[in-house]
């Protein structure tokens, strides 16, 4: 059973000339969970992950796996499996040979190559040149690379980009399985909805800075609660809400009131003798609060 290590970012800063790509970023990623690393394009996600993997040198701060920097890991591919956004393949090399090169470099047994190709569903394309692969197949080959050393930590940059619906369903199950087996799984995405069904924890950055971290459900707390309420007599309902000091806007399917509890709105309507035709909490809180957090960092 692979053992997941704690990933720790402490005070990571990266500047490219006058531009600060990552600004004093600190957070930890725990094993046994899928952690979503979220933020809009250009927020600094890829730079942060490349610093974690020793590919980019941080201006300040360190990132470690169980306290050890990537470049100091005695067996890197057996500790961490990483797939980065860029398609890193020589188009003239076959999938099998691509993996074989790195299995040799890491001193892994050659059987691992076919094992991981089977795991990601590419076994029948093992001897095809990667140049002819679709984006989805390249993503799978990238995942196969991460699994070569049976690592306890997975770091995946935008792994869902370019996958078809079947592939998306597959990778969601894959991420859950990996975490359930005790691995540390860090997945970046610029869309919360893409990973919402698979992540336990979220770390949200915008403009290189941390704006939120916590369990996925913690995003709910950030969402402004909305109640959708409607009546055959909208005028009367509006008057009742105004009288009760409940702020609201007029939406397509009724009035949208800013309130926590539908029962309270129901009570206001009942007291005013207004008949209701609809009363429910508006869903979609997560994506909305994600966007609010990300955009809030702008101002």
């Amino acid at each position: 059973m692979p053992v997941g290590a704690v990933i720790e970012f402490s005070n990571i800063t990266k500047t490219f000339g006058p531009v600060t790509a990552v600004n004093d970023l600190s957070f930890t990623v725990q094993p046994g969970l899928v952690t979503g690393f979220l933020g809009p394009n250009g927020a600094g996600k890829t730079t942060t992950l490349r610093i974690l993997l020793g590919l980019v040198a941080s201006t300040q701060g360190t990132a470690t796996f169980g306290g050890i920097r990537y470049r100091d890991l005695p067996k890197p591919l057996e500790t961490v499996g990483a797939a980065l956004e860029a398609a890193s393949f020589h188009p003239g090399r076959t999938a099998r040979n691509h993996l074989r090169v790195y299995a040799i470099a890491a001193g892994l047994p050659s059987e691992r190559v076919m094992a991981v190709l089977e795991k990601v569903g590419l076994a029948e394309f093992a001897d095809r040149r990667v140049g002819g692969f679709s984006l989805g197949m390249r993503q799978r080959l990238g995942l196969a690379f991460t699994l070569l050393g049976e690592p306890g930590v997975l770091v995946l940059d935008e792994p869902i980009n370019g996958l078809d619906p079947e592939g998306i369903k597959w990778i969601r199950g894959f991420l859950r399985d990996m975490a359930a087996e005790g691995r540390t799984v860090l997945v970046s995405s610029h869309l919360l909805s893409e990973v919402q069904q698979s992540v336990d924890e979220v770390v949200i950055i915008a403009r290189g800075s941390l704006v939120h971290r916590g369990p996925l459900s913690s995003l709910d707390a950030h969402a402004t609660p909305h109640i959708v309420v409607d009546s055959p007599d909208r005028e009367a309902l509006a008057a009742a809400l105004r009288a009760a000091d409940v702020p609201f806007t007029t939406g397509r399917s009724g009035l949208v009131a800013v309130a926590d509890d539908p029962a309270r709105i129901g009570h206001i309507a009942f007291s005013a003798g207004v008949e209701l035709s609809a009363l429910h909490r508006r869903k979609s809180g997560l994506e909305e609060s994600f966007l609010a957090l990300v955009n809030g960092a702008d101002s």
Binding site: L53, G54, L55, R71, L77, V80, A86, S88, V101, Y102
Partner: peptide, 9 residues
Amino acid sequence: LTPTFLATP
């Protein structure tokens, strides 16, 4: 270079 340096930092 990415997979190369991941395998051999």
